[in-house]
């Protein structure tokens, strides 16, 4: 029971942070909302019993990546964003669409709870560091290594697109 209450609390914080990220006009406010989202996610991971992932989430995302974000925003001295006077069709159709879709998904999940057909994963050491290491460096070694190619092209892309035209 306490589990569910905590989950709802952190879930609400997480979604609220995400919405605030979009609504805020100043980049710094958006970045700080993202910290809230990351932190709430870490707590949800913790509730799932994934302590290692929760710790990594805090260290890597809330720590390293967010610091980088904030640094870049400060270096660019980015000010408040201006709203373009584009069409409001996206807003008028998109927001009700998202709400309708969310309601549909929530309704399906709640009313057809028994037919969802999920599986239970309740091994004793689920989420502990050792099984994660075994997954990461053995079963998922190839995706783990191939991610280096992904990072390489992302860096290369930043260099290529950011380079001054001679």
């Amino acid at each position: 029971m306490i589990h569910q209450i905590l989950f709802i609390i952190f879930g609400v914080i997480c979604v609220a942070g995400a919405v605030n990220l979009l609504v805020q006009r100043h980049p710094i406010n958006s970045a700080l909302s993202l910290v809230v989202v990351m932190g709430a996610l870490a707590l949800i991971y913790l509730l799932l019993g994934a302590e290692f992932v929760a710790a990594i989430q805090v260290i890597v995302y809330a720590g390293a990546i967010m610091v980088l974000f904030v640094f870049v925003i400060m270096l660019l001295n980015a000010g408040e964003e201006e709203r373009s006077r584009g069409s409001h069709i996206a807003l008028l159709l998109g927001v009700p669409g998202v709400i309708a879709l969310g309601c549909l998904v929530a309704w399906t999940m709640l009313s057809h709870n028994t037919q969802l057909g999920g599986v239970r994963i309740n091994t004793a050491d689920f989420g502990a560091t050792q099984p994660i290491a075994r997954l990461l460096f053995r079963d998922f070694l190839l995706p783990f290594e191939i991610t280096s190619v992904l990072i390489l092209i992302a860096i290369m892309g930043a260099v290529v697109l950011g380079r001054r035209e001679s």
Partner: peptide, 17 residues
């Protein structure tokens, strides 16, 4: 599916650039 996702991202990001 995890490997497919990483491969999909590699192919997509390089074409974005």
């Amino acid at each position: 599916l995890v490997l497919i996702f990483v491969a999909l991202e590699i192919s997509s990001i390089s074409t974005y650039i």
